[in-house]
Design a protein around this nucleic acid. Sequence first.
DNA 1: GTAGATCGAGAACGATCGTTCTCGGATCAG
DNA 2: CTGATCCGAGAACGATCGTTCTCGATCTAC
Lengths: 201, 201
Amino acid sequence: MTSNEDRKRAEEEDRRGRIVEAADRLYYSRGFSSVSMDELRDEAGVSLRRLYKLFPSKDDIIIATLRKRRRVWAEGIAEYVDAVRSPRDKLLAVYDFLAGWFCEDDFRGCGFVNAFAELGAVNTDVADLVREHKAHFQRDLARLVEELGAEPSLAAQLAILAEGAQTTAAVTGDPGAAGHARAAAATLIDAALDVDARQAA
Amino acid sequence: MTSNEDRKRAEEEDRRGRIVEAADRLYYSRGFSSVSMDELRDEAGVSLRRLYKLFPSKDDIIIATLRKRRRVWAEGIAEYVDAVRSPRDKLLAVYDFLAGWFCEDDFRGCGFVNAFAELGAVNTDVADLVREHKAHFQRDLARLVEELGAEPSLAAQLAILAEGAQTTAAVTGDPGAAGHARAAAATLIDAALDVDARQAA
DNA sequence: GTAGATCGAGAACGATCGTTCTCGGATCAG
DNA sequence: CTGATCCGAGAACGATCGTTCTCGATCTAC
């Protein structure tokens, strides 16, 4: 009996996952308000009834897609950052991750920034989630910058580069923005270390 | 008779301007799809009938607001860039302009990026206009970088900084992003000039 | 002054949206 | 097998949207 309930729970979780994936595909590629629930139902291959049983409202699905996207971002970044040793390489790995992402054919900028632009002013939950995500990213950079032994403002500069690369790549369609951001980051890192060394002397 | 027609033409242009200003206020602060034509009518203080006589559709108003915003951006940038002499100062003036903008209480990021995020995938005219605007900005930077005598890739890096500063300031609400971007820009400019000087030697 | 154009206010229209409800069939427990 | 429960397909609902139309008032030209 319990195993039966477990199976149901797993099935439900599986379907939730498929719905969120379908929703993210549609929302990310076309925006939130231009995708109807009917369209999401078709893409996810579930009935409207089940859709609303698993997610009480469209806003809940939107939040779920952003949460999923947050996990995917964290894993993607970690894959690149954990692959190298030095704090400097780890910081630069961020832009290597971006370079790979920008080359995907469905790339359309930062999903969080897009969500913030479209819904941030009218949906507090979305705005908060986006703010949290960006703050988390900046904290990650700040930690690496601290390990590197550079001033904290370097982290803010590197975050701005990553942010600008995403927007630039999205609008111009040129994945090369990642390379430019990486080169700029390397210059800034080295300059920050030079300054620190000079101040120590 | 002709003067009468001129007066009418001027009145019409005046009203078009007020409508675009009202629309830009609403669209920029809350997004495009969440502002109805009824709301715009109230904000602009005109009748729905006149609204549709002056602009055949909501999409036309959206495009008009973006065109207006493009002019305002160009004038704002020029005000800062033209005030200083050297190419280096002119490049840095861009971030001073951003710093002032970020401090306005209604600042909510780059209106073009927001438009691209919300409508770019479903409205070709919007996407094209945003792309054009960003390309124009990058050309302006490239011209200054050339005057400076640095490699062209510096312009791409500076554009990414400006882009990232806007997004970061919008999401975090911290106007300090402009200062960080400016400091990074100064470092990148000086590094580029050092490299060029070293290569020339 | 008056016919005709023009206008504002807002009702009306048709489409679309998010959400709920209906109903006939499948599923499951006992 | 049987009664109850759950489900999918899609109709239905109420709200909202972009857009057009109505109608009575106002203005204009002569």
